[in-house]
């Protein structure tokens, strides 16, 4: 059973979002607490606890709700922010930086959407052009969307604020809730895609790549804007054939024109995450290969290898007909990527 225990902050007992979620998750043990911080992250709950079911916390997020995104987060030219509506994820990607990030694998859902939207409005007012807001920095945007039912309220905001752009980032094919909403020109649903065998090996519990591709196709035909993240690219002997296959499927499913952008990134992590991966997935193939510490301190494939992969995948996309201005390389500092690229 997903979420056998639900912790609810006492002052949210009758909050409409909480009641809606409870309706969708009947038969759970409900516990009322003063604040989610009294329990969540209070003790170090190892990531291995995910093997048994994780708890759900329904809470109110305090402090900053909208934060500036790290550099190279999205298409350059516009300011990028991410907003916090959930902590942790029901999927289990071995390379995910969330493992152990919050000292607990339990999931927290923040239901004070109005305050998040208010902060978005204020952020938008600070800029004159388009402003991007990304969901999914600390979770998957769609995995539980049929239970949380959180996007309609955001839709109202984005419908009324065409300058604000929303990105919902996902490795899920769960588009039930989205299909109930009308496509908006300033909302992009972005799918993270990997080579099929890599996904099967390292992205446990997330939707299979073919299912993600199908979901993407359905949304695209319904008129939704689509984004794609080919990130992280993980080397296998068949990596280039696998990405050729993927590029073709992307083209078939969504078509060239409904895809707003495609980001490409090679696997990378900091040493702390590497230790966590080693602990949480002993013997994983992910760590059997060689990494170097690049100039930004992150562990990456050696430069010739990762740049070869990034350029080769970029070429594959270009050959498949995706225009170059919609392709960007993610999270590589400029001097690493383009210094010598004519």
């Amino acid at each position: 059973m997903i979420f056998p225990r639900i912790f609810i902050e006492k002052n949210l007992e009758n909050h409409p979002a909480v009641l809606k979620i409870l309706q969708k998750l009947p038969g759970r043990e409900i516990r009322y607490i003063d604040s989610y911080t009294d329990v969540f992250g209070k003790v170090y709950k190892p990531f291995s606890h995910r093997k048994k079911n994780i708890d759900l916390f329904l809470a109110q997020k305090k402090g900053s709700l909208v934060r500036e995104a790290p550099p190279a987060y999205g298409i350059s030219g516009a300011p990028h922010y991410y907003f916090i509506h959930t902590y942790n994820c029901v999927f289990e990607c071995q390379y995910c930086y969330l493992q152990g990030y919050f000292h607990s694998p339990d999931m927290v859902v923040f239901v004070n959407h109005e305050e998040i939207l208010e902060e978005m409005q204020n952020t938008l007012a600070q800029h004159s052009g388009d402003v991007w807001f990304h969901a999914g920095e600390f979770s998957d945007s769609l995995a539980l969307s049929h239970i949380l039912d959180d996007w309609p309220v955001f839709w109202d905001f984005f419908r009324g604020n065409p300058r604000a752009r929303l990105e919902l980032r996902t490795k899920s094919a769960n588009i039930r809730a989205l299909k109930q909403l009308e496509p908006l020109p300033n909302v992009t649903v972005s799918f993270s895609l990997s080579a099929e065998r890599t996904a099967a090996q390292f992205e446990k519990k997330s939707s299979p790549v073919r299912a993600r591709l199908r979901a993407m196709g359905i949304l695209s035909r319904l008129g939704f804007r689509i984004g794609i993240h080919l990130d992280p690219i993980i080397y296998t002997p068949s990596v280039l054939q696998d990405y050729e296959w993927l590029a073709e499927r992307m083209r078939e499913e969504a078509g060239i024109n409904s895809i707003d952008y495609i980001s490409i990134g090679a696997i990378r992590f900091n040493s702390d995450l590497a230790h966590k991966i080693e602990k949480n997935y002993p013997g994983t193939r992910l760590l059997l290969t060689d990494y170097v510490r690049s100039v930004d301190g992150k562990l990456r494939y050696a430069r010739p290898k990762r740049m070869f992969l990034l350029q080769s995948v970029e070429e594959i996309l270009l050959r498949s007909g995706f225009p170059s201005h919609r392709i960007y390389i993610c999270m590589e500092s400029d001097d690493l990527v383009y210094s010598e690229k004519e």
């Binding site: 430069r303 010739p304 740049m307 070869f308 992969l309 350029q311 080769s312 210094s339 010598e340």
Partner: peptide, 14 residues
């Protein structure tokens, strides 16, 4: 040098 940097930067044929 330029050729060497290009190779280090992964720009070589398949």
């Amino acid at each position: 040098r330029e050729q060497a940097v290009r190779i280090m930067n992964g720009s070589f044929s398949k």
